[in-house]
Amino acid sequence: MQRVNMIMAESPGLITICLLGYLLSAECTVFLDHENANKILNRPKRYNSGKLEEFVQGNLERECMEEKCSFEEAREVFENTERTTEFWKQYVDGDQCESNPCLNGGSCKDDINSYECWCPFGFEGKNCELDVTCNIKNGRCEQFCKNSADNKVVCSCTEGYRLAENQKSCEPAVPFPCGRVSVSQTSKLTRAETVFPDVDYVNSTEAETILDNITQSTQSFNDFTRVVGGEDAKPGQFPWQVVLNGKVDAFCGGSIVNEKWIVTAAHCVETGVKITVVAGEHNIEETEHTEQKRNVIRIIPHHNYNAAINKYNHDIALLELDEPLVLNSYVTPICIADKEYTNIFLKFGSGYVSGWGRVFHKGRSALVLQYLRVPLVDRATCLRSTKFTIYNNMFCAGFHEGGRDSCQGDSGGPHVTEVEGTSFLTGIISWGEECAMKGKYGIYTKVSRYVNWIKEKTKLT
C-alpha cells in the first residue's frame, strides 16, 4: 500500500490518463441519441435557420407576430419608411378606419389613436360632414345658397324668414311668412316636400332668348283662358290664391305678392273693366268669414305684352289694390325667389296649380277651390304637342294621358313649387288646347323671366 501511494504521488498524470480511459469505455446513459432527441424537440425550422439574422431580410411573422416588435424591426421587413409607417399605425392600436367614419364618399386613412378623412370636392370637416359648395344638395341650405369668396357655403332665406341657429334652416321672422300653410287642420295635408338634388348652379339658368321682337298675326285659340281631375282644397291650404270678379264672377285667378299687390295673367284683364279681388276665398257660393274683398285701382301688364300681336306672350300683369290686405292664416303671400332659384325650383319637376275653373272641358265651374299636382314636361315634348308657338318664356306641365289639367277660369292662378315646406311661385296658368285632352298640356308663363320686374313694381313704400 505504501508503494502504491508513492507511485500516485510521483505520477499524477498517469492516474488522470487511467481515469479518462475508464470513462470513455463506459456506456453513456444520461444523453439520448440524435434521433430520439429530435422526437422530443420537434420544432419547425425557421426561415433563416442556421444563418445569422443580421444578414437576412426581415420576416413579418418572425419579427412582429411571434413577439412584439419595434418600429426598427418592422422597418427591416418593409425596407421602406412609408410602408412601415402605414403598417405601424394599425399594428400599434388597430384600424381606426374600420367603422368607416368618413361621410359623403370620403376616404379614410388610419393613424395612431386617430384617423384622417380625405374629402371629395365640396366637403370638409373631420368626417367630411361639412358642405362647402352650393353645387351639392344646395349646400344643405333649406332655401338659398351662395358661395363666399373663400368658396364656403353661405345660406340665406327669402323675405319674412331668418336663418336658424344651425345656419342652414329657415324659420319665420314674421307672423305670416310667405308660402307657408298655417291653418292647423290643413298642415297635415301639406304636399310632399321637395329635397334639393345635386345641381350645376353655374349652368342652372337656361341660355334662352326671349323672342321679344317676333311679330306674329293673332292666333285663334280655343278655350285658351284655361282644375280638371283635381281635388277639393281645404280652407287655408292655398292662402296665396285669390279669385278675380268682373263682368262675371271667378273669371280668373291670381296670387298675393304682398298686402297691396296681386300677380295674374295679362290676358285676364281689360282696361276700363272694374275688377274686384277676393282673398281668403274657399267656396265661392258661401260666406265663410275668411274672405277679404278689395278693388283694383291700377293694372300693370308687362311692358312687352301686346294682345294685338299675341294674347299669351309675356302673359303676366300686376294688380294694385285700393287697401292693403290683412295677412292671416287664410290670406298669405306666395314666396318669389330670384331668377336663378325660381328656375331651379321649376326644374324640380312638379308643381301645384289651383283655381275655381271648370271641372271638365266646357263644363261647370268649381264651387270649392280645386288643386292638382302636375309634372313638368320637357321642352321637346311640349313643342311636338301643339302647332302653336311655345315661346321661351312659357313652359308645359300636365299629363300625356289627359284627364287632369287646369281649365277655363283658372287662368292667372299660381303654379307653385314647394321647397322644404315653403311654396314659391314658378308659373302662372296661361293657356292650353281644350282641357285635359290626351297628348295636350297646360301652358304656363315662366315666372323666372319676370321676377325682377315683379319685385321692382310691387315694392311697398
Rank of each mutant, 00 (worst) to 15 (best):
M6T: 13
M8P: 12
A9G: 14
P12K: 11
P12G: 12
G13E: 04
L19D: 02
L20P: 03
Y22N: 04
A26L: 04
E27Y: 06
C28D: 03
H34V: 11
E35C: 04
K39Q: 10
Y47D: 09
G50C: 04
E54H: 13
F55C: 04
G58F: 05
E61S: 15
E61M: 15
E67A: 05
C69R: 03
F71S: 14
E72A: 15
E73W: 04
N80P: 15
E86H: 15
D95H: 08
Q96M: 06
Q96C: 03
S99V: 05
P101C: 00
L103I: 10
L103T: 09
S107K: 09
K109I: 08
S114P: 03
S114G: 09
S114C: 04
Y115S: 01
F121D: 13
G122F: 03
N127L: 05
D131G: 13
T133R: 05
C134L: 02
I136N: 14
N138E: 03
K146L: 11
S148W: 06
R162T: 11
S169K: 08
P177F: 00
V183I: 12
S184N: 12
S184Y: 11
T190K: 13
F196D: 12
F196G: 12
Y201T: 12
V202Y: 13
V202L: 12
A207N: 12
E208P: 11
E208A: 10
I210D: 10
S217M: 11
F221I: 12
T225F: 07
D232M: 14
K234G: 08
P235G: 05
G236A: 07
F238V: 06
P239L: 00
V242A: 04
N245V: 09
K247V: 13
E259V: 07
W261K: 01
W261A: 00
A265F: 01
H267K: 05
K274V: 07
V277T: 03
A279M: 02
A279P: 00
I284G: 08
H289V: 08
K293W: 10
R294V: 02
V296P: 03
P301Q: 11
Y312P: 03
H314P: 02
D315A: 02
D322P: 00
D322G: 06
P324K: 06
L325I: 03
L327T: 06
N328F: 01
P333H: 02
I334G: 01
C335Q: 01
I336N: 01
I336M: 07
I336Q: 01
Y341A: 07
V353Q: 04
S354W: 03
R358D: 10
G363M: 08
G363Q: 10
R364G: 09
R364D: 13
S365M: 12
V374E: 01
L376T: 07
T381R: 13
A397F: 02
A397D: 02
G398Q: 05
F399T: 14
H400I: 14
E401G: 11
G402M: 15
D410F: 10
P414K: 00
T417H: 02
E418L: 10
G421I: 03
F424S: 01
S430F: 04
S430T: 13
S430E: 03
W431S: 13
C435K: 04
Y441P: 12
Y444R: 00
K446D: 07
K455I: 07
E456C: 06
